[in-house]
Nucleic acid binder design. Structure first.
Length: 730
DNA sequence: CGAAAGGCTCTTTTT
DNA sequence: GAGCCTTTCG
């Protein structure tokens, strides 16, 4: 009975190609899934189908995603369909799954089960230390570029040995030297970086056929989402795992490949058939998300890409409103126009704030928006600002916890050795690091040796001994304390609160620390020995605090990259300028330019009903003003589906039907008010007209005042005087 | 040692 | 306009 209803649900509501994707259960399968084509439904239904109709045990299925959020959502959706029947399913990110494999079987590649994972900040610190040791100038060889070279090498499965053979430039030679030393420092700290997690898993499988065979037998069915974002190491891993049963389902869209700068290789998707000539290919080309107009505009933008595989996206959705392109004076004007439109969508078109999202190329663009939204009292959330686990105070506490877990974690020890300040300066730290490096020991070893010597300057020696006692004391207590108490112990013993409170924003930071304790409370009931490693694993593989409550009704500010996979009824793409989108750093690289175009495509296809584009004639970025030409993507959109809105809003009148149906200028006696006019009010001072529309015999004017923010006023009562002022916002 | 001051750089950032 | 680094001085 249960099975029957599941089956109905699984198969009846799918279109023919979705159905084919779900029902093709054996052999390699490639699903090309255009934006809004019901990809997630296909994936989840396919898994449900495997279990309920084909009798596959959930424990024989692995589904891989790129983000924890995607993994969580996938599991949730599967649970909705199958209930508890999905127990035992492996759903996770590449990194989480590989970490688990390495904790169990990593001994074979020289890893202890307790290894820590360094994130990219730790990596940068380690590289800086390496540069110092090798007497290389970090200005000449920026730690960031070396890090990305090492990361690129690792994602191509090049170890510090095999990389040596491919060195072909002086810079690569430098990278090679750093790579070697970097790797030995990692191993001294019993640490791996993100790339190692994949690399070492591949090596584990390659060198240990018996281990590989075990996993191959367990995972009869493999499914990989966002396949266009996989790198070589990830594809290799998947090929190994699928080596026996060959039931590999790859899902992706080459047009949404926007992470090549992170070594993602879209060829994995495009040449899937070279690896698996017998693969079934299913194209999901019906779009359920956007209006015909939006889909057409997006298709026009990407059509000229050489990498674009001709596929005809189509939809049964309504024609919809034209795409709107707004010209703005500067980024403040742009923000204001966006907010004015949002206001109208909410006031007149039945949308809510949560239906609106503003998408941009670079994070710096969010600032003008935030200022505007705050000023007008519009609620918003900024996605991915400084993320929780990136905050200094959080990283400090985690560094303490890592040292407690593994005293030989030298990067974490270096971080906290003088945080809060305890008189151990750069000089002393460098001396310790030099000693450690000369003896091939950890920083902790160097510390305990040096602290016990008496022939050192008394001040430094005292400080070191006290620090050593502090750490050892906490380590001892950690045996018996539950995780939240352990954190509390660290905070108390280091007077961390007092340290934070010396800063202006200390209060906020302290709240973050309390938040960390709340997260740790989930581990309170576990034995101290187990809780700490589990907690550290979680925080090192997690990017955000569990994605803020999606329920709140607020405008979303988000980068184009982060918006991939999301959808909103109304989307605003700001900064449609050559130099911003496409970004000027991509100008001289044709491949990068195509990626910029895909980025634009990804942004446009997030929109369900309304798509607003805008550009500023002058834009202040990083202190200096720039005049960018309009984005080259604008002219690819045919005029019949694009409404241009001039600098002063003259073209607003007929803008997208219900919007802007009211003329924007009204005469009341001899005064005339238009959006953008500056006005003076006796009590509120000066402000700018955001909106006005007639009501009975009066005129309702929304004015944003410089001092008191937005106010809705009746003209007959308000006594507004027009004033001269050219800037759109102070 | 560490606070203060000045110089430099700034695309995107799933783990 | 912020964050990070180096330099300088007490």
């Amino acid at each position: 009975m249960v099975y029957c209803s599941i089956r109905m649900d699984v198969l009846t509501s799918l279109n023919p190609s979705q159905r084919e994707a779900v029902e093709t259960t054996s052999g390699p399968l490639l699903i090309i899934a255009g934006p809004g084509s019901g990809k997630t439904r296909v994936i989840t239904n396919r898994i449900a189908h495997l279990v309920t109709s084909c009798g596959v045990s959930p424990s024989n299925i692995m589904a891989v995603t790129f983000t924890n959020k995607a993994a969580r959502e996938m599991r949730l959706r599967i649970q909705e369909i199958m209930g508890s029947a999905c127990a035992g399913l492996t759903v996770g990110t590449f990194h989480a799954i590989c970490c688990r494999i390495l904790r169990t079987d990593g001994k074979a590649v020289g890893l202890s089960p307790g290894f820590v994972v360094y994130d990219d900040d730790d990596q940068i610190n380690l590289i800086k230390q390496t540069l110092q040791e090798l007497k290389l100038d970090p200005k000449q060889y920026s730690p960031r570029s070396i890090q990305s070279s090492i990361s690129a090498a690792k994602s191509r499965l090049l170890t510090e040995q095999t990389h040596a053979e491919s060195v072909s430039s002086y810079f690569e030679e430098i990278v090679q030297r750093v790579y070697q030393r970097y790797q030995s420092l990692l191993s001294l700290s019993d640490a791996v970086d993100f790339d190692d997690i994949l690399l070492k898993t591949v090596h584990l499988f390659q060198a240990n056929p018996d281990v590989l065979a075990r996993y191959q037998e367990q995972y009869v069915h493999l499914l990989v989402d966002e396949f266009q974002d996989t790198n070589m190491a990830q594809f290799e891993l998947v090929k190994l795992l699928a080596g026996k049963h060959r039931n590999l389902c790859a899902v992706g869209d080459p047009d949404q490949s926007i992470y090549s700068w992170r070594c993602a290789d879209v060829r994995n998707l495009l040449s899937f058939n070279n690896e698996y000539p017998d693969a079934t290919v299913v194209m999901l080309d019906q779009n359920y998300r956007s209006t015909k107009t939006i889909l057409k505009a997006a298709t026009q933008v990407i059509a000229s890409n050489t990498l674009h595989k001709e596929k005809d996206l189509w939809t049964e959705n309504a024609e919809g409103k034209p795409v709107v392109m707004s010209e703005c004076l500067n980024e403040k004007d742009e923000a204001q126009k966006v907010i004015a439109i949002i206001d109208k969508l909410v006031q007149r078109d039945g949308l809510s704030y949560g239906d609106c999202a503003v998408l941009y190329r670079i994070n710096a663009q969010s600032r003008a928006l935030e200022e505007g939204l705050m000023r007008f009292g519009v609620p918003y959330r900024l996605v991915g600002g400084t993320r929780f686990y990136r905050r200094q105070e959080i990283r400090d506490i985690i560094a303490y916890l890592r040292v407690v877990h593994n005293a030989h974690d030298s990067i974490s020890l270096a971080r906290i050795i003088n945080t809060p300040g305890r008189g151990i300066g750069q000089g002393t730290l460098t001396r310790l690091q030099t000693r450690a490096s000369e003896n091939g020991e950890s920083l902790y070893d160097a510390l305990s040796y040096t602290a016990k010597r008496t022939d050192l300057a008394a001040r430094a020696s005292n400080a070191l001994s006290r620090f050593l006692a502090l750490i050892d004391g906490i380590i001892e207590r950690s045996q018996e304390l539950a995780l939240p108490e352990l954190i509390e112990e660290i905070l108390v013993r280091t007077s961390y609160r007092a340290y934070l409170m010396e800063r202006d924003d200390g209060e906020d930071r302290w709240e973050n620390v309390q938040e960390l304790k709340t997260v740790a409370a989930d581990y309170a009931d576990l034995a101290p020995r187990e809780a700490l490693p589990m907690f550290l694993e979680k925080v090192s593989l997690v990017s955000d605090t569990d994605e803020m409550n999606g329920a709140s009704d607020v405008v979303t500010l988000i980068t184009l990259h982060q918006a991939k996979g999301l959808e909103f009824p109304a989307v605003f793409m700001i900064g449609m300028e050559d130099g911003v989108l496409p970004h000027r750093k991509s100008f001289d690289d044709p491949a990068a330019m195509e990626e910029e175009c895909r980025l634009c495509y990804v942004g446009m296809t997030r929109a369900q009903k309304y798509l607003f584009l805008s550009r500023a004639h002058r834009r202040n970025l990083f202190g200096n003003g720039l005049a960018n030409p309009p984005s080259r993507y604008i002219e690819r959109i045919s005029p019949d589906i694009l409404t241009a809105r001039g600098l002063w809003g003259e073209d607003d009148v007929d803008l997208s039907g219900a919007l802007y149906t009211q003329p924007l200028a009204y005469g009341v006696s001899d005064e005339e008010f238009r959006v953008g006019d500056w006005v003076y009010h006796k009590k509120f001072g000066q402000g700018v007209v955001m909106d006005c529309f007639p009501d009975k015999n009066d005129l309702v004017i929304t004015v944003s005042f410089e001092d008191s923010g937005p106010k809705r006023l009746l003209l007959s009562l308000a006594h507004l005087d027009k004033i001269e002022r050219f800037d759109s916002m102070p």
